[in-house]
Amino acid sequence: MNAEKQKNSSSNQIDGNLALQILQQIPTPVMAVDPNLQIIFMNQAGCRFIGKNFEEIKGTHCYSIFNSTHCQTSDCRMKKVIDGGERFTARNQVNIDDRVIHIEYTTAPLKDDNGNIIGGIEYILDNTERVRQEQKLREQNKIIMEISTPAIKLWDRIVVIPVVGVIDSMRAQQMMDTMLKEITQTSAKVIILDIHGVAAVDTAVANHLIKIAKATKLMGCRCIISGISPAVAQAIVQLGIDLGDINTNSTLEDALSDAFALLKFEVISKK
């Protein structure tokens, strides 16, 4: 009994026929090639994936079937494992007939009993859906980035930048870039940063604001921060942040009249 068990474990516990059946029925494409990249095995899922019978593709070069972006380049992970690599996983895009499929493939060397490399094995995961989602996310991020920092020319040489939402360091950097670019483009003399729509101000956000104000000053432009709510004022003082000589106002209206004063403009009602 024991001896039989040992015999079984030495032959990988299952007999070859069952192993082949399992391999054939794994619901993901599995392929093996020889060192010349000619296909020596493709399971049923793989055949379905490429839409051909195994007899049709046996012995053909894998690159002629998959036609992927890695094929016949130094990116080919199959070539790398055949040349002695350990194991690779990479994203790729295959072009079968007219279909374009985004995949993630993992390769490993195929070794004989003595450990000599006699080819390569790979399995393929279809991640078209994931790639599509990621693309959508990237596009949305781009849109948010674009709409997040509008610069409005309010008056001759006065520019307003309303800020809504959360300020993180990336956004602060982007705000600074927009502002500084706007200053050179419109040769603005006063720039009003309206933080009315910013929910909370912590030390990081306040530091970003100070940085932005400093940069505008270095460019030779005045920066007024408006829309400071009582809660924000409280928070800034309680956090012990020194805003230095940055002009601050509670409303955009006051900031605008400050800007007019700086530019020596006067608003007169027509009677």
């Binding site: 950097q173 500084l180 670019k181 050179t184 940069a215 505008t216 460019m219 030779g220």
Partner: peptide, 13 residues
Amino acid sequence: FVGFQPGVASALI
């Protein structure tokens, strides 16, 4: 000083 470029200003900050 006149005309600091945006990139220069943000780098200096």
